[in-house]
Design a protein around this nucleic acid. Sequence first.
DNA 1: TAGCCATGTCAACAAGGCTGACGTAATATT
DNA 2: AATATTACGTCAGCCTTGTTGACATGGCTA
Lengths: 170, 170
Amino acid sequence: MADGPGGVSQSGETLLFLTDDQLRRAIEAMFFAYRGFTADPDLILEEQGYGRAHHRALHFIHRSPGTTVNNLLATLGVTKQSLNRVLRRLIEDGLVDSRIGALDKRERHLHLTTDGATLERELSEVQTARMRRAFRGAGPDAVAGFRTVLEEMMDPEMRRRYHRIAESGR
Amino acid sequence: MADGPGGVSQSGETLLFLTDDQLRRAIEAMFFAYRGFTADPDLILEEQGYGRAHHRALHFIHRSPGTTVNNLLATLGVTKQSLNRVLRRLIEDGLVDSRIGALDKRERHLHLTTDGATLERELSEVQTARMRRAFRGAGPDAVAGFRTVLEEMMDPEMRRRYHRIAESGR
DNA sequence: TAGCCATGTCAACAAGGCTGACGTAATATT
DNA sequence: AATATTACGTCAGCCTTGTTGACATGGCTA
């Protein structure tokens, strides 16, 4: 039980004694870290007159090329009106290509254009650069733990979606 | 180098080889996890007609009782007009108490009222419950890694602020 | 005393959520 | 074949929460 300040008490195999204070610290860590997480892409986006919503759309279209509007809707967890506003601009600006489905003509399949892929790369570069620094500073065990906890924090449906993206992305 | 799928390659002590795909996975994990992180408090807040901004104010006033408006401003990273709108309602509704500074009468020192503390507790309970589940599921090493990485992701100024909260909160 | 500081406030605007309603194809069902 | 459902787009209007700019009031400080 001799833990350093802010340490996590451990008893037996997996039983954790987490004080209220430790849990609140984690809440603050999430809050501040998320700010850092979005800070770099936000700068680029603002230059171009886009917002975080555009970034998210570009990211997931990149990760799941040919995804349908409905699928993207579920991934992002917003209404179609909200997504449509964002998507319309990306299509108008020539960053995203919307193709009528071959099998089901009601569906639209979304792809990044060359310009879209370029912006997406710019955004992901600054964002992954920060993650890389954080991971390097923390070490491999920390990285594994980080990902495990994040996954545990997701709602079950989102966790499924999280796994599905990785599967289709290969 | 024999890593499972999605594993993190390690060479030597701290040198990490992180593929582009692994880093993008981490981006997605952050996105989905943050959604989970805010989901439970959001439900309670909506019932009461408050938003996430009110939650943040309540949280940090709870953590640093007697904090000034300026200090809270810097912690939250918003403009005073934006904070004031939120704070005004919390004061009007009797959740927050704003006291004129004893030393410097220009300052306002913020405290939670009994009602404010009650709501804050309700919100933090559901949020920490999720974190507790996530931590328990992930194990103590994962928790340590999680916190390390999050801290590394923060902007330096926010990291300082993050530490300052813990110091004053005791 | 002059000037800066902490705070509050008014006004106007933007992004990005939301609901509700409606239209149009295209597919599915009966 | 007729009907229902699905996928998508769009219009309109609302809310929260962020922004900038301007201005007022006390209270410190040099």
